[in-house]
């Protein structure tokens, strides 16, 4: 029994974190808000590929490193920390493993790993109105679209841009024209990847709020010295830190199954555990961050909203907390 990370995993995480701090910092994020498909937002994409990030789940024969899901989720939590406005989860943690397990029917794995092609995923779980079409982020730049359990090329889909609360999402409704290629369901990979990003977002929201309340003075003292503020932040930190191990554990289980989609049902409970805890924790962190920032956080020229809105997008993506609890409840025989 060893619930920790090895040196290689920590080294990859730190290297990617340093790259993102340098090349995908706040300025880039703000540029992505006004031009999500533009060169500024996407400048770090080839750098990530050079570092091997898109190939973490690809075999060496496809130019990947096959380092696995534990490393992948650590990296995705770093992407969450900086609110990276790019479809890294969709390409590296959904598209790549789906294509690996499907035998790369379109022959695109190499270009994904090399950073020359982009996959996005249309989810559409838990729609109130089933007449709505699934939507995918990074729609202007994606070369490949996963819709249901199939993969479509850009020429085989019709896109209708729709506004997301998070303008960096570059969201569009996706309608498939052809048959596509069967690659398998993106649900388990997507839920685990989103959970990892949400842990990073939640941690960033707590730490940026801690910094703010130490600095912000009212009544002659830092507002962070008030118990009403302290207790909210202690709770937010607790929920994020109890969600994180569930994400790492689900990633480890995914690795034990070799990422084989055929056996994914066995890890479904662990994935649901990770996603439900991470969604709830990140939403709590977002509410707490906004409340503790006061009116400062309720402006769009202060950067807090970029993290809040990403949480609002990813918390329901690939199944909300409630959706995943229900899935486990069905498995336990508690629902009809």
């Amino acid at each position: 029994m060893f619930f920790g990370f090895d040196e290689d995993q920590i080294a990859v995480k730190e290297a990617v974190g340093a790259l993102l701090d340098k090349r995908a910092g706040l300025t880039v994020l703000q540029q992505a808000w006004s031009d999500p498909a533009g060169p500024a937002a996407w400048a770090v994409w080839p750098d990530l590929a050079d570092m091997g990030v898109q190939g973490l789940l690809a075999p060496e024969s496809a130019g990947g490193s096959d380092l696995g899901w534990v490393t992948m989720t650590l990296v995705l939590s770093e992407a969450g920390r900086v609110a990276l406005p790019l479809p890294l989860a969709e390409t590296a943690a959904i598209g790549v493993p789906l294509l690996v397990s499907a035998g790369d029917p379109a022959g695109v794995l190499g270009s994904l790993v090399a950073g020359r092609a982009v996959v996005t995923v249309a989810s559409g779980i838990g729609e109130a109105d089933s007449g709505e079409r699934p939507r995918a982020p990074a729609a202007s730049r994606a070369d490949w679209f996963v819709l249901g359990d199939r993969l479509y090329g850009r020429d085989d889909v019709v896109l209708r841009p729709v506004a997301s609360v998070d303008a960096t999402r570059d969201l569009a409704e996706v309608e498939a024209l052809g048959e596509g290629l069967v690659v398998g369901s993106p649900l388990e990979f997507g839920a685990l990847a989103a959970a990892a990003v949400l842990v990073g977002l939640g941690r960033a929201l707590v730490s940026t709020t801690v910094d703010y309340v130490k600095d912000r003075h009212q009544f002659g003292v830092p507002v962070g010295s008030f118990q009403a503020v302290k207790h909210q932040l202690a709770d937010a930190a607790m929920h994020v830190e109890f969600a994180a191990p569930a994400v790492w554990a689900a990633a480890w289980e995914m690795d034990q199954r070799g990422g084989d989609v055929g056996n994914i049902g066995e890890v479904a409970r662990s994935v649901s555990l990770a996603k439900a805890l991470a969604s709830d924790a990140a939403e709590r962190a977002a509410r707490t961050a906004l409340q503790c920032h006061g009116a400062m956080g309720y402006t769009d020229d202060y950067h807090l909203h970029l993290w809040l809105k990403r949480v609002w997008c990813l918390s329901p993506a690939f199944g909300s907390a409630r959706w995943h609890r229900r899935r486990v409840g069905v498995d336990m025989g508690l629902h009809g």
């Binding site: 962070g224 010295s225 118990q227 503020v229 932040l233 202690a234």
Partner: peptide, 16 residues
């Protein structure tokens, strides 16, 4: 009390 301890010693918030 535990929330005070967590806030002050883990998060580094100032003592009241």
């Amino acid at each position: 009390i535990q929330r005070n301890i967590a806030a002050e010693r883990l998060l580094g918030l100032p003592r009241s």
